[in-house]
Design a protein around this nucleic acid. Structure first.
Length: 482
RNA sequence: GGGCCAGUAGCUCAGUAGGCAGAGCAACGCCCUUUUAAGGCGUGGGUCGAAGGUUCAAAUCCUUCCUGGCUCACCA
């Protein structure tokens, strides 16, 4: 949409005027400037130099106050005609707009109302905003516009910036923690010939030269475990996974996953590590955000079957036949259709239990047959050595002792291929992965944590779209018309 | 895909017994040298999401469509 209007026409005119008056309208730099946050700590009378976007302006004949915003915050500047001179002041008055970038230098002083302010002795025009900013008081409220025009959201909505920068800080803290623990960060293929490592429908793309379809990865798991075979004992990857599924408050088709693998440990180790990761993320942001959930306490471990029995009011048992499960699901008004046992359990869990798991909860007791990449418990072969971590009624992580027996792994893959009727498993078996296992993989545990969801919990964001800079939106005619 | 709600100026929003489209911010002009949602006086700005219908007359009622949000379904 070409929303050219009287305001952009006026602003373009001003840009022209600036150039005609000999102003460099797009200078390349403004050196030695101080960030607003720091400038505000400078003593009165000291000289400072700042740069930023004009966010507001109060003009009074021969003087003016304005706020400049930079990456660190806002600082008020005071421009007086008798200090900057007639010509500069007139330039400021007639050719500058809210939204423009300027650099300013002068002395710090404190106003009558007590705000530390830069009294400008000279300023430099840095860049023009040809379009008006959203309204200064209400900001940009329209949710669609906030996501589509995220840059505007970031300019005017402090909360958005806090959440999204918070996300970056969380990722940095995770990297720091894993670095300290001796982990190596790696990158594995996103374009894959065979997709695996999770149950999900993939995106399909195409390679021209080889003339083959490739899949965007749904998980990096199988590649990371090849590294364990290769002798790397502690590895992790933070990267994008792609799942061709619905969008919701909790789902974006591309999302960021942390996967960690550690040789010579089992899933119990990963319980500890995942707790450390969550707490380190929380610790990183606790000054800015106080989540409703106190993440520092109430961590517990609960059995899947106990949970669904308790919250649904019907007794569920791992040995229930599919008929019994259907009957119970019907009684609970949970649609079961032709679903597998695992899917019915999952539905009941989603309907009755998930939203109740507010405090951090490690759910254990998952069936081995529903956990194709996990090792079975040596105590009871029916169960996998596995947990999922729930916080705030949401799944945050998934972990297990990794299956390293190539024969069992082959059988599990074969079962998957057979049962795949809706495209959520590849119809090809990753034989190279099996070959890798045949070379021997040390016992190891693995952990996956959804970074977006972790960020939601720690920042208190109610939608995954709030923690993703540019969430997926339906393409609109809008985007093409510019 | 189903249900509910919404779309009016650049932004935030008012506006139904159907009767000349409004406010605040932003913009433009004038005044104003400690303001901070600055203030005062004045001015311009609209395909009321789109198309069709009912009507003397539609932002308003009807139909269809588009876009979005919430929700359900789908989905580690």
């Amino acid at each position: 949409m070409d929303n050219t209007n009287d305001q952009t026409i006026v602003r373009k005119e001003k840009l022209k005027n600036l150039a005609e008056k000999g102003v460099d309208t797009y200078p390349a730099s403004y050196e030695n400037r101080m960030q607003a946050e720091l400038a505000l700590k400078v003593d009165e009378g000291e000289r400072v130099r700042v740069a930023g976007r004009i966010m507001s302006r109060r003009l009074m004949g021969k003087a003016s106050f304005a706020h400049l915003q930079d990456d660190s915050g806002k600082i008020q500047i005071y421009i007086k005609k008798d200090l900057v001179g007639e010509e500069k002041f007139s330039l400021y008055k007639t050719e500058l707009d809210i939204g423009d970038f300027i650099g300013a230098e002068g002395q710090m002083f404190t106003t009558r109302t007590g705000e530390k302010t830069l009294q400008v002795s000279d300023f430099t025009f840095l860049s023009k905003s040809l379009r008006p900013l959203p309204e200064k008081w209400h900001g940009l409220r329209d949710i669609e516009l906030r996501y589509r025009k995220r840059y505007l959201d970031l300019i005017v909505n402090e909360e958005s910036t806090a959440i999204l920068k918070g996300r970056s800080k969380i990722i940095a803290s995770v990297r720091r923690l894993l670095e300290e623990r001796g982990y190596t960060e790696v990158e594995t293929p996103i374009l894959q010939d065979i997709f695996g490592g999770a149950a999900a429908r993939p995106f399909i793309t195409h390679h021209n030269l080889y003339n083959i379809d490739l899949y965007m990865r749904i998980a990096p798991e199988l590649y990371l475990k090849r590294l364990l075979v290769g002798g790397w004992e502690r590895v992790y990857e933070i990267g994008r996974n792609f799942r061709n599924e619905g969008l919701s408050k909790k789902h974006n088709p591309e999302f960021t996953m942390l996967e960690v693998y550690c040789a010579y440990t089992d899933y119990k180790y990963m319980m500890e590590l995942s707790k450390e990761i969550v707490l380190s993320a929380h610790n990183e942001l606790k000054k800015e955000f106080t989540p409703e959930i106190d993440l520092t306490k109430g961590w517990q471990e609960k059995n899947l079957w106990d949970l669904i029995s308790e919250y649904s009011g019907l007794s569920f048992d791992p040995d229930d036949s599919i008929e019994e499960l259907r009957k119970k699901a019907d009684a609970l008004k949970v649609p079961s259709g032709k679903d597998s046992a695992a899917k019915i359990i999952d539905r009941v869990f989603s309907a009755f239990v998930e939203e109740k798991l507010i405090q951090p909860t490690f759910v254990t007791g998952y069936l081995a047959k529903d956990s194709p990449l996990a090792k079975s418990s040596s105590k009871d072969l029916r169960f996998a050595e596995r947990f999922e971590l729930f916080i705030g009624g949401q799944e945050i992580g998934n972990s297990y002792s990794e299956q390293n027996d190539p024969e069992i792994q082959r059988k599990m893959f074969e079962l998957q291929v057979q049962s795949s009727d809706d495209g959520e498993f590849s119809d090809k078996i990753d034989t190279d992965y099996l070959e890798a296992l045949e070379h021997g993989m040390p016992p190891a545990s693995g952990l996956g944590i959804g970074i977006d969801r972790l960020a939601m919990q720690v920042t208190g964001a109610s939608s995954i779209r709030e923690v993703i800079l540019f969430p997926m939106l339906k393409p609109s005619a809008w985007d093409y018309a510019f």
